[in-house]
Amino acid sequence: MRVTRGILAGVSACLLAATVAGPATAATASGRPSPAPIIVTEQASDRVVVLDSTKRWANSNATLWSWQPSADSDAGDTSKSWGLPDDARLRTGADGRQYVLVTDSYGLLASVPYSDKGPVAWSVDLGRSPNPHGIELLPDGNIAVAASNGSWIRVYTASQGRHSDTYVEAALPGAHEVWWDARLSVLWAIGDHLLVKYAVGGTPAAPTLTQQAAYNLPTNWGHDLGPVAGDPDRLWLTTVYGVHQFQKSTGTFVGFPRQRELYALNIKSVGTDAATGTVLETTPKAGNPCSWCTDSVDLFVGADSTEEKVLPGAQIYRARWFDEESS
Rank of each mutant, 00 (worst) to 15 (best):
Q68C: 12
P69I: 06
P69E: 06
D72C: 07
D72N: 15
S73V: 09
D74G: 13
A75I: 14
G76D: 01
S79M: 04
S81F: 09
G83P: 07
G83E: 03
G83K: 02
G83A: 05
L84Q: 11
P85N: 14
R89A: 14
L90W: 09
T92M: 03
T92Q: 02
A94E: 04
A94M: 02
D95M: 12
D95N: 14
D95W: 08
Q98S: 13
Y99R: 07
Y99Q: 01
L101T: 08
S105L: 10
S105A: 10
G107S: 03
G107A: 04
L108W: 12
L108P: 04
L108G: 07
A110P: 02
A110T: 05
A110F: 02
A110K: 09
S111F: 07
Y114Q: 03
Y114H: 11
Y114C: 00
G118S: 11
S123Y: 13
V124I: 05
G127T: 06
R128M: 07
R128G: 14
R128L: 10
S129G: 15
P130L: 03
P130F: 01
P130R: 03
H133V: 13
G134Y: 13
E136Q: 14
E136F: 04
L137G: 04
L138I: 01
P139F: 03
P139K: 00
P139L: 07
P139E: 03
D140V: 08
D140S: 05
G141Q: 10
G141K: 06
I143E: 01
R154P: 01
T157I: 02
A158K: 09
G161Y: 10
R162D: 08
R162M: 12
D165A: 13
T166K: 12
T166Y: 07
T166C: 01
Y167V: 07
E169V: 05
A171M: 10
A171T: 12
A171Y: 12
A171V: 11
P173Y: 15
P173A: 15
G174I: 01
G174C: 05
A175L: 04
H176L: 02
H176V: 04
V178M: 12
W180N: 12
W180V: 06
W180G: 11
W180A: 02
D181M: 01
R183M: 08
R183G: 10
S185M: 03
L187W: 05
L187M: 02
W188C: 03
G191E: 00
